[in-house]
């Protein structure tokens, strides 16, 4: 059979696998970007030495462990502390002064993965004397990454990069004040996570659960198609208080020029937006 015919079949097999996961396990990936799904699933297929996606589908249906594996494959957990330091610098300069005017503050980290960015935000709030009146809701679709996030323990290999990021983000202390090094790990000060609530939340299916002053959701929506992106942005809009802030990844964008946009730009390169008032 020629490659074009095989590709057609493979694309059908992909759809069937996505449908199978949804019917059996209740996770709906149909509005994730196709190229991403395909790359991850084909990778899993070859690692397992399967010759077709259909073989993977069969295994996923009958063996929960294989589903867990695929679920893990589809959740991208590449993150770091103070990733894209200018984002945190801009938070400090443009968002923190407004947050300071509220007696209590809610922040939602959507798709927080293993928690590095949550800790970064907590450090920033601590330095701005806001941590004790803030509750951070850190959510992810994946229970396992939330367990890591709760612990606040990371490999020491990252520290050099993270220290540099911290400094570039406008950090005012020595980064090592926030952690203790032990063998090949660093353990972050548990006070930083005291006001953090970790919750399982699926942006595809779950609803609003909080009124919030700031939502941070960076490099999560790149895995969603336009339809799902719109749905998630609506969820964020509902969850933000008037004049609340939304921070997304530097290569993502909200179409603020469209007439029905509920957001205005606060910064451009770091993609911080503010919810319109007057609706």
């Amino acid at each position: 059979m020629d490659e074009k015919e095989l590709l057609k079949i493979q694309n059908i097999e992909m759809k069937l696998l996505i449908e199978a996961i949804s019917l059996k396990y209740g996770y709906d990936y149909s509005d994730y970007t196709k190229s991403h799904l395909k790359r991850r699933l084909i990778r899993r297929m070859s690692l397992e030495n399967y010759t077709s996606i259909t073989q993977l589908t069969e295994k996923v249906l009958y063996d929960k462990d294989m589903f867990e594996q695929v679920f893990w494959d589809l959740s991208i957990n590449v993150t770091e502390m103070f990733r894209f330091p200018k984002f945190f610098k801009d938070l400090r300069e443009h968002v923190i002064p407004i947050l300071k005017t509220y007696p209590t503050i809610n922040i939602w980290h959507a798709g927080c993965s293993t928690g590095e960015e949550v800790l970064s935000t907590a450090i920033l709030l601590e330095e701005e004397d806001l941590l004790n009146r803030t509750t951070i809701y850190a959510t992810d679709i994946n229970k396992k990454v939330l367990e890591t996030a709760k612990e606040g323990i990371y490999s020491i290999d990252n520290i050099k990069k993270w220290t540099k990021n911290y400094q570039e983000s406008g950090g005012v202390k020595s980064f090592s004040d926030y952690y203790t090094a032990k063998y090949d790990h660093v353990i972050f000060d548990s006070n930083l996570l005291e006001n953090v609530t970790f919750l399982e939340h699926n942006l595809v299916t779950d609803q609003k659960f909080i009124d919030t002053n700031l939502i941070i959701c960076r490099n999560v929506m790149i895995y969603f198609n336009v339809k799902l992106q719109r749905k998630v942005i609506n969820l964020f809009e509902e969850s933000l208080i008037p004049s609340g802030f939304l921070g997304i990844g530097s290569k993502e964008s909200l179409n603020t020029s469209s007439t029905d946009s509920k957001f205005i730009n606060v910064t451009t390169d770091t993609k911080i937006y503010k919810k319109h008032v007057g609706y």
């Binding site: 190229s35 790359r39 991208i76 490099n219 790149i222 895995y223 290569k251």
Partner: peptide, 21 residues
């Protein structure tokens, strides 16, 4: 392609980005 992102083309001739490994 933006530095540090994988760049892909989708079936509807749009770009998508990814930060996977």
């Amino acid at each position: 392609a933006p530095p540090n992102y994988h760049l892909s083309i989708e079936e509807d001739y749009t770009f998508s980005l990814s930060i996977e490994e």
